[in-house]
Design a binder for these strands. Structure first.
Lengths: 335, 335
DNA sequence: AGTCGATTCGGCAAAATTGCCAAATTTTAT
DNA sequence: ATAAAATTTGGCAATTTTGCCGAATCGACT
């Protein structure tokens, strides 16, 4: 048994390591939930006690706990795991790192990058706009990277231009900043009938894959944006989140505010405990469907334009984004 | 809490429903493990007691338990879940259904089917043989389906021929028949250097996806069989299993026997508790790497021949299989 | 300063999970 | 057929997880 409990202690230590402010049991629980673990708040405190006794954490009064040097050492020793790099872990990391502030309208957001041959860009731009126009996009903002420019740890190749789209993970970060832990459960291919979401055709859970689900759907040619735009019957990429039941109203409120800054992407919000699009949710949670960030460029692959996309490529300052209607001007400026 | 326990009771009932012979606690535990659930044997008995009291199961002496009418009703009422259809569930189902008997060399095995234009078949046959020859295949057997023939619930289209390859899930069934519960954890893209497996490039867990990982890798053009065959440097599709630690020798033994009947596909067997190719395994288990069943046809996609593959398509009698070296003759007979 | 409300914490106990063991029974070997 | 070995089962207790509650602490407002 000590095997299992040891692993849980490590999970807690790992979260503690990633933050520099003390965490109380409830704050830590939020993170735990956002990562998909299921504990009660009491259990967290139970482990805090054990970790305190072992000297791996320190009780900083009512502020919360911090990890000690000893705890960091313990973590380092056990760090052998997690070489693989599931998407779920990457999502969590980026969620911590992004700094976008909804009210100040500044800070960094998480972006995907697609490499497109610069000379074909003007030709395909209208297609991309169509997706934004139809509302099957994560917000209305985008950005461009010149060849040679660096995004995350990728560099735009010569002769190519990087098209940056907002990653839907950005929403997680915004929600978390408002104290709402959103768990990213999976990416799915959503079937639309007459513009109405009906059911998931395919599903890939984030914590079970090293490949981005949306990239997979796009590269496998399983999407159908052309149809979705033309007559509302098609298949588009979306993400599925779970939020605490009692934060539902809060989320709906934030969704509105996000829309005003060009980051609207929440498509559906379910009811506590109720399945959403036939997907059951955990007890005390509600399901949320979020538009996929890569959607605007997916239509290119569909229409025969080869592109290379990297989801979760890196972070970009909000100021560097512009409205999609400016795309043509920006492209002209680039050439 | 009763929410959680109720779900666990259902899991047990579901297994009980799928078998017609009484199951003892240890037999049921094997099934649970094969499905990826982690219980102790005692806990199973604990739930048996509860289910007995509720009248949902019946104690048939030392033989084991059976589900009662009441239990079936309870299941039906809760059946709302699982609409989505993760691959993990499908794997479990098929593992139960297949009947291949290693010693009698008869019964059904699980196969994948790839649709290939009949007229291009003779041209690509040598390529397929190369993969078998190089040993990057699940066994040495295959089968062909004429157009119009039915496999599972798919029908071979006109002008096409169905190429049936052995699905690696077949091994699960054989192991289970020998009392070894093998849990299928994920499909991965394995990097080879000088013919040696080195590390996983990508990973998709079976219980987190509705798409077959190998199909994804193939359709996304991420495989590199050409390289793997030419100089031993490439990327091939494999499956990862976990077996009980103390069944290791047993599995190695079975692996040999399977090879003699043309079903050899076990590539690596790790040590109890030790990571295999940087993949950590659960406590008391050992990792196993199994060659992907679709490998032989993957090379076609790689070389530009469009094919359509369906993993886990259906079951085929072992007698209908033939050695890959007979392929050309069989193709001639078909034309 | 005093009060209210919210948050955090730890004690206690109930519920859930699991280890250990001995009795009953079945299977296997002789 | 009989003895030995293995399996199955249920009782008891230890461990783990969680619910409930009262006390302590912090911040905000009067």
């Amino acid at each position: 048994m000590s095997e299992k409990t040891a692993r849980k202690e490590l999970v807690i230590l790992r979260i503690l390591k990633d933050t520099d402010v003390p965490l109380s049991s409830s704050k830590l629980l939020e993170n735990l939930h956002a990562m998909g673990h299921d504990f009660s708040e009491r259990t967290v405190r139970h482990y805090f006690q054990i970790l305190d006794e072992k000297g791996l954490t320190e009780n900083h009064g009512k502020k919360g706990r911090l990890i000690t040097e000893l705890g960091l050492g313990e973590l380092a020793r056990a760090k052998v795991f997690d070489k693989v790099g599931f998407l779920g872990a990457k999502i969590d990391q980026l969620t911590y790192k992004m700094t976008f502030d909804l009210h100040k309208r500044c800070g960094t957001v998480i972006t995907n990058v697609s490499f497109i041959e610069t000379k074909t860009l003007p030709r395909v731009a209208p297609l991309i706009c169509q997706v934004y126009e139809a509302g099957y996009s994560m917000g209305t903002m985008m950005t461009l990277f010149k060849s040679g420019e660096r995004v995350g740890n990728a560099i735009i190749p010569a002769g190519m231009t990087g098209l940056g789209t907002i990653c839907s993970i950005t929403l997680n970060g915004v929600l978390l900043a408002h104290g709402i832990p959103a768990h990213s459960s999976f990416g799915g291919l959503l079937e639309l009938h007459k513009h109405k979401p009906t059911r998931f055709a395919e599903i890939i859970k984030y914590n079970g894959t090293s490949l981005d689900p949306l990239e997979v759907f796009i590269r496998s040619g399983m999407t159908d944006y052309a149809g979705a735009i033309k007559n509302g019957n098609g298949r588009i990429g979306v993400g599925f989140r779970e939020i605490p039941a009692d934060s539902r109203d809060n989320v709906l409120d934030l969704a509105d505010k996000l829309k005003t800054v060009g980051l609207g992407g929440i498509m559906l919000v379910g009811w506590p405990g109720q399945p959403l699009l036939e997907i059951p949710v955990s007890d005390g949670r509600a399901g949320v469907v979020i538009i996929g960030g890569l959607n605007p460029v997916a239509i290119l692959e569909e229409t025969g334009t080869k592109i290379q996309s990297r989801a979760l490529a890196g972070m970009v300052e909000y100021e560097k984004l512009f409205h999609y209607k400016e795309m043509n001007d920006r492209i002209d400026a680039l050439l």
